[in-house]
Computed example of a mutant assay.
Amino acid sequence: MIVRRASVADVAVLAELRGIDAEKLKAYGDWVAAHADTHLPFIAEMDGHVVGAAWLLVAQRVPSNESLDRWYGDIQSVQVREEYRNRGIGGALMAAILTEARTRGLLHVTVHSGRRAVDFYLRNGFRHHRQILLWEPGPS
Rank of each mutant, 00 (worst) to 15 (best):
M1S: 13
R4N: 07
R5Q: 13
V8S: 15
V8K: 11
V8A: 10
A9L: 10
D10I: 00
V11R: 03
V11I: 13
A12W: 04
V13L: 00
V13R: 08
L14C: 03
A15E: 01
A15P: 01
E16L: 02
L17V: 01
L17I: 11
R18S: 14
R18P: 00
I20E: 01
I20V: 15
D21R: 13
E23V: 10
E23C: 04
E23I: 04
K24Y: 11
L25V: 05
L25A: 10
L25T: 03
L25H: 04
D30N: 11
W31H: 05
V32G: 02
V32D: 03
H35N: 15
H35V: 01
A36V: 06
D37S: 09
D37M: 05
T38K: 10
H39P: 01
P41C: 11
F42Q: 12
F42W: 10
A44V: 01
E45G: 03
M46C: 06
D47R: 04
G48M: 08
H49Q: 15
H49K: 13
V51L: 01
A53E: 12
A54F: 00
A54M: 09
W55F: 14
L56H: 04
L56S: 09
L57T: 04
V58N: 10
A59K: 13
A59P: 00
Q60A: 15
Q60Y: 11
Q60E: 15
R61W: 07
R61H: 06
R61N: 12
P63A: 14
S67W: 00
S67F: 06
L68P: 05
W71Y: 12
W71C: 08
Y72G: 05
G73D: 03
D74M: 15
I75N: 03
I75D: 00
I75K: 03
Q79A: 10
R81E: 09
E82G: 14
E83K: 06
E83I: 06
R85I: 12
N86M: 01
I89T: 06
G90Y: 02
G91K: 09
M94F: 04
L98G: 10
T99C: 10
E100M: 13
A101M: 09
R102H: 14
R104C: 11
H108K: 14
H108L: 14
H108V: 00
V109K: 05
V111E: 05
S113R: 00
G114E: 01
R116L: 05
R116G: 12
A117E: 09
V118Q: 09
D119Y: 00
Y121K: 08
L122W: 01
L122T: 06
L122H: 14
R123V: 01
N124H: 12
G125A: 07
F126L: 07
F126M: 13
R127P: 03
H128F: 14
H129L: 04
H129D: 15
R130Y: 06
Q131S: 14
Q131R: 14
Q131K: 13
Q131F: 04
I132R: 11
L134A: 13
E136V: 11
P137M: 09
P137L: 12
G138M: 02
P139E: 15
P139I: 08
